[in-house]
Design a protein around this nucleic acid. Structure first.
Lengths: 343, 343
DNA sequence: CTTTTCTACTGTATCGTTACAGATTTCCGC
DNA sequence: GCGGAAATCTGTAACGATACAGTAGAAAAG
């Protein structure tokens, strides 16, 4: 046996990776036959298929991705376009885990395509389209009228979005029911005797801002509560949120209930409330979304609604694959309901 | 044999994505010449190179990855092996963002290779090696004697680890100085007059458990404090941590200081302390690591040390690329120091 | 004026796969 | 026995890139 040194850079060849040629040689068949046998083509004999499959399994044959990709154009890649800007609580990782979970059972690899949401959001999508580097794309931070959706739709690239759009294009998506969340949040606060309610809302250009607003307004109307305006969003820095809330609490318009669209925001809001000398559960109540159950640990008084990002990841992964397989987009749209704490 | 079309003759420019052939046609050169010109090979004329580069830029030429990969074996992929098991605070995403940031300026794509840390950790690494699906690998949750490191080293696969190993193999890594963290944490607690100190430690099989332990023990000795044993680790569920801490606080051996190796753990520890009727900053002090500044928002009394995972991601990305380029591993090892709050 | 050397460029084979157009054998029906 | 269909299998040519072994022409050497 020859002793190879492992040194800088080069990968040592595995004990020679098997190709179709290897199997062809071992079975005495042609390369084409082997290829077709492994795809279960109708013009290959049953016994031959069996033999080929046995040898392939035995050798641990895995098709060479570069070969397939070059010949067929199929990349076997799903691209996840991610904003790499600051994120306080890492819900992104849960989504990545969910997608990974689904892709693990398939031939697809997950490629992270980063971008900064201060830059042109079309850049990463255009890159993927122009270089043909993925069979399907998942995007988040969806806007009501999203140019990325427009572009991918137009170019026929299968994709799924985290969050709906509102542009007359039917496409796969998964969304959290922010409308129900906000509406029910108001209801829960009113049930606790609260009537003057503030909302820490999502950034205005994202789609779920709209749903949150609609739900909130509906809730106010339906359960007869009043809105107390809060000049901050979940994209505002925590320090600013805290200061704004503190000032609001000290003002004559202080709310007695508050709805928070993010858990990081909820923490800052709570800090503002306490800085003003008030206490959750006593002077004021809060309903907040959370992706992990930290909030409940921090302040059990917070009514914490769970948004399951791992589930969202799974749904998005499944949807984009199904879309690649030609399933109609209308069948690949799902909305998950807020999960309320027991009792 | 048939006369094939040659570069001088009848090649039609593709209306699709440009290839070397397109550029060859437009410049009137051979495909090989174009390829070599774009690589700045020494045997191509300066003026020719200039012309080729101009046309390539103009067409927005990007080499076809499948072509390169098939011919050269170079994948231009960095694989990040990630545990997809529950993670409370999402530090993983920060690491992903850091790596992405570095790779964005290169030809490398980032592929997420998931695995469950309850399963054999070698599976994803073996898959990458056997299918040759990456040029470099980044792994986390490094163990003192890590079989993945052993395997990749042996097969000559460039890699970088988050966390050191202790197995006589020199390889790129980035690590947080957990020893300094634990030692200084004890010091900070002693400075506050605390003497009976407990440690919420990392899971025993991971490498940084050792460093944390050494630092902690050194601190105890150096600053004359006593260890109060705590039967839990950061991998224990939050509910269990809380119960354990609560019981400990009620016992005659209650600590008056505690060091936490994770922020999620710190939240549970705090819950336990409060459940037992004690208060941070009054009866007991806590030093804890955090990857985002949530802890400080939740309980400003917690002395929160910042561990920068985005920075770690950047370092790991740079290290693995440098290793692929043949830089010696000894030059690709970095340790980042705990960042203490001001004052 | 020939030979050698050098510069600048090019054709061919190849990586592993699949589409496509045969090719061979078997098995019918009549 | 024969035409023809069915059932199986196979060779060749790509996909886009690069390694390698050239070649043509000019310049330098003799």
């Amino acid at each position: 046996m020859d002793n190879k040194k492992t040194s800088g850079g080069g990968i040592q060849p595995s004990p020679e990776r098997p190709t179709l040629k290897t199997i062809a040689f071992m079975t005495g068949l042609g390369i084409t036959t082997v290829s077709r046998a492994l795809k279960d083509a109708p013009d290959i004999g049953a016994e031959t298929k069996e033999r080929v499959r046995m040898v392939a399994r035995q050798l641990g044959y895995q098709p060479n991705r570069a070969g397939v990709r070059l010949r067929t154009g199929k990349t076997n890649v799903i691209a996840l376009v991610l904003s790499i800007d600051e994120e306080i609580m890492g819900f992104t990782s849960h989504m990545v885990f969910g997608i990974s979970e689904v892709l693990a059972g398939t031939q697809y690899h997950l490629v992270i395509t980063p971008h900064s949401h201060s830059k042109d959001p079309l850049v990463p999508v255009r890159y993927i389209l122009d270089t043909g580097s993925a069979d399907g794309v998942i995007i988040s931070r969806t806007e009501p009228d999203d140019p990325r959706v427009e572009l991918m739709h137009q170019r026929g690239m299968p994709f799924a979005t985290h969050g709906r759009t509102n542009m007359g294009i039917s496409h796969p998506f998964h969304d959290f029911d922010n409308e129900a969340f906000a509406r029910e949040a108001v209801r829960a606060l009113v049930a606790k005797g609260r009537r003057r309610i503030a909302l820490l809302q999502p950034p205005g250009k994202l789609n779920y801002y709209l749903h949150t607003q609609i739900g909130f307004q509906t809730g106010l109307r339906e359960y007869q509560a009043q809105e107390v305006p809060l000049r901050a969003s979940t994209d505002t820095t925590l320090a600013e949120i805290k200061d704004t809330v503190e000032a609001l609490m000290r003002s004559p318009h202080a709310p007695d209930g508050i709805v928070c669209s993010s858990s990081a925001g909820a923490i800052a809001v709570n800090a503002g409330i306490e800085a003003a000398g008030f206490h959750l559960g006593h002077d004021i109540d809060m309903v907040a979304k959370q992706s992990t159950d930290v909030l409940s640990w921090i302040r059990p008084e917070i009514i914490a609604i769970h948004e399951d990002f791992r589930h969202a990841g799974r749904e998005l992964g499944k949807a984009v694959i199904a879309r690649i397989d030609g399933i109609e987009p209308e069948l690949l749209q799902s909305i998950s309901s807020p999960i309320w704490p027991k009792g």
